[in-house]
Amino acid sequence: MFALYRKLIAASIRSQMQYKINFVTSAATTGMIMVLDFIILSAILYRFHDVVGWNIYEVGMLYGISSASVSLYRLFAPEINDFEKYIVQGELDQLLIRPVSPLLLLLTRNLDLSRVGGVVQGMSVLVVSLSGLAAEGKSIMGLVLFSPIAILSGGVIYFSIGLATAGVAFWTHQMKDMLTFTIYAPANASNYPIGLYPNWLKWLFFSAIPIAYMNYLPMLTLLGKGGAWFYPILTPVAAAIAFYFARMLWNVGIRHYHSTGS
């Protein structure tokens, strides 16, 4: 299984390298957009000093985790994010005739290497925030240990949301609009403390689009903001549950796949 994954990934990287210029420019653009994004956020934070009681380094923790997580998802699962074409153009056909899970084939069709920039950017923000918190005299041991778990769990949560959206697209035949609601807007929202938002939105982020478990909830505990001791444990648990339900929805969706007339 792993050998096959490696072989397929190697093949798609070799394919991409056929178009080197395209690869370089898209990596550069993505990197620049993300840097710009962060500059805007810092500008806002410097102006206001804090957001509902979270100072710049604390928000930086949220931002870093969310940013690295979403980039991780976009790096490894560009074909999930771009799944609409498989349904609309019937490209899923060729994945379903192989004696291998179509999900494995999808994930190995493409790696969006230009997203590495986003992962690095997110982690840099984390490093800056951690040193800032250390300078304030806070203990950062727990945060350092927890960050990788948060990023991986966050990646899985975004992946699950993407997969569930793709599953729904078997009915709607349309995914791009939906991604705005399920991935892009929530990814932006999770750069800030969820406590900021109205109740219905909070509910949404704790249930159907469970991004709160990725950074906000565990940070309540780890930054000493009154979170219960077990909140950080909920992070990987929520990721696992989200993945479980997303797979289920995806599997039901595949049964409704219509393909196209030839």
Binding site: L4, K7, P99
Partner: peptide, 23 residues
């Protein structure tokens, strides 16, 4: 499918065969 290839578009034919061997 006559209308659509199952092979890896950007790779040499041999590579597709090797991938299928593993698959």
């Amino acid at each position: 499918f006559g209308q659509r290839t199952q092979l890896w578009w950007d790779l040499p034919v041999r590579d597709s065969f090797e991938i299928l061997q593993a698959m």
